[in-house]
């Protein structure tokens, strides 16, 4: 009896499993909310949504209007429409593009690869750069360098991403000819867009990381480490860094979802295929089913990213999993 009980609770005892289960469950309402939101999108349109979607200059026939109404899932009562929509989404059917008639899920599948590549590359760059900059900032005794590491990242946020992209393009593609200006062929085409996208992410992560580092360095345990005779290097790397990393992990999820949003701009600037450009095209063509599909996609990405973040958090901070004051 007792043994069976341990077996059953064994899974729940494992902190990683517990967090994982909790997070997946917590993700359900998020996805549901995103679904509700994307459903409401059509109904938020002022007047008849069909009018907003149809080109007003083309004076559509009543038949066309009815077709479109059906296509948008706008026939039947509101709860009925919602139930239908939810049912379709649950089966992975995100509807069809009004413009091209292609299945939205296929469109996502076709474009997500290059976008993930871009966002992933930018994330790696941003992580490396932000660690380097904030470590330099807290360890250098050279004042101008410290000032530069402090001022530069937040200042870079003032420059619009699309403009930075164009400037980089005119210097490194047109001027020096090191990288191709546009396209998605090979690694060299990835460099400029990834750098463009990584700059604001670096600024964001650096700010959080260096704030975390500075806070950690002001803690009494750092003083204690120094009182033990630790070198500044040991103090920063062994004691401050891991503690300073914890708040950074918390916001890394935010950074990733903004990387994906930034892809909208970057892909447009560098004429790269990807979800960003697809969304922009859908928005300008009032292709509501496609927009709805991408809202759902982002909700799922958000949930997945947060699950990963929470697992990282468990690894980084022992206070999450082990009981509080177990021996008190």
């Amino acid at each position: 009896m007792a043994r069976r009980l341990t077996a059953a609770t064994g899974l729940l005892r494992n902190p990683l499993a517990r967090v994982l289960i909790g997070r997946v469950l917590a993700g359900v309402p998020v996805v549901f909310a995103a679904m509700t939101l994307s459903f409401m999108l059509v109904h938020l349109l002022p007047g008849d949504p069909v009018n907003a979607v149809l080109d007003p200059t083309s004076s559509p026939t009543p038949e066309q209007r009815e077709n479109l109404r059906h296509q948008l899932g706008l026939d039947g009562s509101l709860p009925r429409q919602f139930a239908d929509y939810a049912g379709r989404v649950a089966h992975g059917d995100l509807g069809h593009s009004i413009q091209s008639g292609r299945a939205v899920s296929t469109m996502i599948g076709d474009t997500i690869g290059p976008s993930l590549q871009l966002a992933g590359a930018a994330l790696v760059l941003a992580l490396i750069a932000s660690c380097a900059i904030s470590l330099i900032q807290v360890s250098t005794r050279h004042r101008p360098i410290r000032a530069l590491a402090t001022i530069l990242p937040p200042a870079s946020l003032a420059f619009p991403g699309y403009w930075v992209g164009i400037v980089l393009m005119s210097i490194f593609a047109f001027g020096l000819g090191w990288f191709p200006a546009t396209g998605a062929d090979g690694l060299s085409a990835l460099v400029l867009p990834a750098v463009t996208l990584a700059i604001p992410a670096t600024a964001f992560l650096t700010r959080v990381l260096s704030a975390g580092l500075q806070e950690a360095l002001a803690q009494p345990y750092v003083l204690i480490a120094r009182a033990k005779g630790a070198t500044p290097r040991r103090v920063v790397l062994r004691h401050a860094f891991r503690n300073g990393l914890i708040p950074t992990i918390t916001v890394a999820g935010l950074a990733i979802s903004y990387l994906l949003a930034g892809a909208v701009i970057t892909e447009t600037v560098f004429a790269r295929p990807g979800i960003g450009r697809t969304v922009v095209a859908a928005v300008s063509q009032h292709d509501i089913p496609v927009v709805q599909g991408f809202v759902m996609l982002f909700a799922v990405v958000f949930v997945v990213v947060n699950i990963v973040i929470d697992l990282l958090y468990v690894v980084a901070d022992p206070r999450i999993t082990t009981g509080r004051a177990a021996l008190a």
Binding site: L254, S257, A261, G262, F294, F298, A299, F302
Partner: peptide, 11 residues
């Protein structure tokens, strides 16, 4: 909050 602002605006 979890939804990037620019995407929300685009939507």
């Amino acid at each position: 909050m979890s939804f990037p602002g620019l995407l929300m605006a685009l939507t």
